[in-house]
Write a protein that binds this DNA or RNA. Structure first.
Lengths: 114, 114
DNA sequence: CTCATTCATAACTGCGTGGTTATGAATGAG
DNA sequence: CTCATTCATAACCACGCAGTTATGAATGAG
C-alpha cells in the first residue's frame, strides 16, 4: 500500500512559486553572495525596473526567503538561505520514496505484467 | 569581490518551472511512491481532466523529471527522482555562499555603517 | 523650508499557462 | 471487422503574472 501523500503545505507552495521565476532567483542569488543590499543597488544589477524589483522582493518575502530592514529612506534586503529547507525536505522525501520503490518487490512484479 | 554568478542554465530553469505547479508536483509524487503508472491511472487520482494530466506529464518530461514507456494503447510514466539534482545543486550553492557571507569580515563592516 | 532620493503601490498591458471540451489516431478486445 | 479504450493534440477561455509607467509618501541633504 502506498504511503500517505504529504499535506501539500502552503508554505512549500510559496517557496516553489517564489523560486519559479528566474529574475527572482537572480535577486536571491545576489543577496546570498553580496549580503544586505538596498532596492536601488539591486535594481542596478537587474535588467528590470525598480517597481519590478520591489514586487519580486515582496514575493520572496512572502515566501520567507528574504527579510527587509528599513533604514531611513532606504530599505536593505537580506537573504534567508536557511528558509530553503522546505525545498530540501521535499526533494529528500521524493528521492527516498523513489529509491525505496526501486528496490521494492512489488515494483518488480508490476513490471513483469506490463 | 563577489564570486561570478552561475550561468543560469536552461536545464535548471525547466526543473524549477516544472515543479512550480502543485498539480505537477502531485503527479510526480505519485510516480515516486507508486512507481510506473498509466495516464488513466494518474487521471483517476488527480482532480483534473485527462488532457490536463497529459500536458503536465509533457512538461515534467521536458524537464527530464519523468520518462514515458508506451505499451500498447497505454503509456506508462515513471519518475526520475535522480533528475532533481539541479535543484539540490542550486540550493547547496546558495546556502554555501550565504553561509560564507555570514562569517565574512566585510559583511560585518558593511553592517556597521548601515 | 525646499528639493532630491528612495521605495512601494496603483493602473495598465501582453503573454504565458492551467484548465476545459472536442477530436482523432492507435490499439486491444470480442 | 467492429467497437471501446487510451492517450495526445487542437482550440478555446480565464486568470495570473511579469513587465511597464505614473504617482505619492517618507526621508535625508543643503
Amino acid at each position: 500500500m502506498p504511503a500517505d501523500a504529504p499535506p501539500a503545505s502552503p508554505a512549500r507552495d510559496q517557496v516553489f512559486r517564489a523560486l519559479a521565476d528566474g529574475s527572482r532567483r537572480a535577486l536571491f542569488e545576489r543577496l546570498c553572495r553580496e549580503g544586505e543590499l538596498t532596492v536601488a543597488r539591486l535594481t542596478d544589477g537587474a535588467g528590470i525596473s525598480q517597481p519590478a524589483v520591489s514586487r519580486h522582493l515582496a514575493v520572496l518575502k512572502e515566501g520567507g526567503l528574504v527579510e527587509a530592514r528599513p533604514a531611513g529612506r532606504a530599505t536593505f534586503y537580506r537573504a534567508r538561505a536557511d528558509r530553503l529547507a522546505p525545498l530540501d525536505d521535499w526533494t529528500r522525501e521524493m528521492r527516498a520514496t523513489w529509491h525505496a520503490r526501486l528496490h521494492a518487490l512489488d515494483d518488480v512484479l508490476r513490471r513483469m505484467d506490463n
